[in-house]
Amino acid sequence: MSQLPSPKPESPDPSWGGNVVRIGVAAAWHTACMSMVGGCLYVAPVWRPAVNLPPDIIRPEEADVREIPLVFNTSQVLVTVIASDPEQQALEFVWQTPLPDPVVNTYPQGEDAWVSVLTLQEENVVDGDEIRVTVFDDNPRGAVDVVWRVELP
């Protein structure tokens, strides 16, 4: 299968090969400065700590800036979140719904996307209920929340 559509710009390449080249160039520059010129006015750190970036939410769109209306135009609604991790780590999805143990189907898709689908029945919600999913990789501090608000007809 080909790639998923990419509504957001791709993250910088975090590959180890790119880091090796950068470190090598910086080390050579610093060595040259110190041995030939007598030192550098500013020495940028050769090593930069790796930052575990939070997951990107691909769907629903604009999930980071607004609460998503969840309109029950059918008696059963499948609430879907699609996410990817910049470091391509496995993602986990924790759903909070009026039902303590809802039916959820989560699976990896393609090279780096993860899909989590929550099945909700109309009789299990009331107008105004909040549905929330927390998406995180192996660093829960970088978790991202997506929030829907139930709208019954």
Binding site: R59, N105, Y107
Partner: peptide, 28 residues
């Protein structure tokens, strides 16, 4: 049409498989 969740279920409604359509609308 991308981003369409595709599911196959049996007659009891049990989920047997699922996928997401890609930018070419393709799924497997």
């Amino acid at each position: 049409e991308g981003f369409v969740v595709v599911e196959v279920r049996d007659d009891a409604g049990e989920l047997l498989g699922s996928a997401l359509s890609d930018e070419d609308g393709a799924w497997q």
